[in-house]
Design a protein around this nucleic acid. Sequence first.
DNA 1: TGGTATAGTTACTTCAACGATACTAATGGA
DNA 2: TCCATTAGTATCGTTGAAGTAACTATACCA
Lengths: 108, 108
Amino acid sequence: MTKITSCEVDTALELITGKWKHSILLALINGDTLRFSELKRALPKISQKILTAQLRDLEEQEIVIRTVYPEVPPRVDYRLSEYGKTLIPILEAMNEWGMRHAERMRSN
Amino acid sequence: MTKITSCEVDTALELITGKWKHSILLALINGDTLRFSELKRALPKISQKILTAQLRDLEEQEIVIRTVYPEVPPRVDYRLSEYGKTLIPILEAMNEWGMRHAERMRSN
DNA sequence: TGGTATAGTTACTTCAACGATACTAATGGA
DNA sequence: TCCATTAGTATCGTTGAAGTAACTATACCA
């Protein structure tokens, strides 16, 4: 087994932690390409400011791709980059673990 | 593919996020059974207070097992529970991703 | 008598992330 | 003329996690 190092894990962890980032990623995984307003509807409790900030973060990390259409009213959409899609196995592993955890809790 | 839900991912994420938790888990993965002072040496920058708090958290979640020996000076050790070990695949997935990310950054 | 060691606890402070609200630009439609 | 729409920005306020420093008990050792 390769030794797991804190440093490498940190890198991945930083991209999906925070109160909202993983929810945004999941919305984009399940929804493909979404407009700002669609993301906002998918995550009703997030504020605009925070959603914008998180998306800018993810864009800077090259995890999501932001496309601006020069229209009025404005239209902007977001989708996972190919690189961003490489995070899916991690989220899948977490999802599977979470389901087994829920199972365990039910049969406590 | 099973749909990944925010809720299930959350459950796993909560256990390994925070500034220190995943580092503690990694130390226990690599070190098997460690005393409090050994953990402290492994994570030089964590304060006693925080280390204690995080370990209590992990104990409460049944991720780590805390054993107190009635000696003076006190001796307490910590190890992953079997349940805690089920988190290893997640940390491995993150580690692998982190390594590829580092690779990518090198050849930017 | 005082120092060392271990595994904490207590009280106080700091800071970054998060959040609520109001505001903007540009256009089409009533 | 005024309102609605969209994707934001600006400003200020709040909160919780983390950090710092000092303190504790108990026994051994010089």
